[in-house]
Design a protein around this nucleic acid. Structure first.
Length: 220
DNA sequence: TACCAGGAGAAAA
DNA sequence: TTTTCTCATGGT
């Protein structure tokens, strides 16, 4: 079902979200590398927790790959304690930094075509589809739609999914339906997260169902 | 107090 | 191959 998503309907949802929340200007980071670090740290964790961890690293002057790798893993884990899953994430962040440098850093990775870059990101221990796509979209400006739990819930509520689609099926379905538009994908994912956090959380068991209601209202 | 959060990988079935 | 379990702190 996800291979035949309704692009016009999805654009109507986007317009409704943008009218409600305005531009989001994601990702909240100073550099592409900081986007990548944040993408790893935010796995199954609220952004406020991630901010504490990023602040700890910044205080140490450790927001570069060499600086992170220079920290012993136990110390890195201790700095990441506010993030949650700190032992796991210390290991994953070090693996990411090692791969980042091995591939020539930002310059080396930027030279790769999107499919190859995605393949190499997914080969890093601790980088799954969503994290890789966060990095591709927000650090490298590649036209990749980030499919998170909110996106799945929204599409399900809209009746665009039957619930059995895998990550790749949904991602490719969205990219086909919406066209490969970096600016659109950037704002759309940010708006879904913003709406889910600010609006849906105030409505018990809402999920992102009110997005569907919002869209239905716009369409009449 | 209980639940959830911008997942991923390993282990078990 | 698919499902279940583990990782863990901070905010509401």
């Amino acid at each position: 079902m996800a291979s035949n998503l309704d692009g016009d309907r999805l654009l109507a949802v986007f317009e409704a979200l943008r009218a409600t929340h305005g531009p989001q200007d994601w990702w909240p980071a100073q550099t592409p590398f900081e986007v990548m670090v944040g993408a790893v740290l935010t796995q199954n964790t609220s952004w406020t927790n991630v901010e504490h961890g990023l602040k700890n690293l910044a205080t140490l002057g450790a927001l570069t790959a060499p600086a992170i790798l220079a920290l012993p893993e136990p110390e890195l884990a201790d700095r990441l304690r506010p993030v949650g899953y700190f032992n796991v994430k210390a290991r994953r962040l070090r693996a990411f930094c090692a791969a980042y440098l091995a591939h020539g850093g930002l310059e080396g990775l930027s030279r790769l075509a999107t499919p190859e870059l995605r393949h190499r990101l997914l080969a890093i221990q601790g980088v799954g589809p969503e994290t890789a796509d966060d990095i591709l979209l927000y650090a490298f400006d590649r036209p990749v739609f980030v499919v998170d739990a909110y996106t799945r819930r929204l599409l399900s509520r809209l009746g665009e999914l039957d619930g059995n689609e895998g990550y790749e099926t949904i991602r490719q379905g969205l990219e086909t339906a919406l066209g490969r538009d970096v600016a659109l994908f950037n704002e759309y994912h940010a708006l879904i997260v913003r709406h889910a956090k600010e609006v849906c959380r105030t409505r018990p068991r809402c999920g992102v169902c009110c997005l569907a209601e919002l869209c239905a209202g716009r369409q009449g």
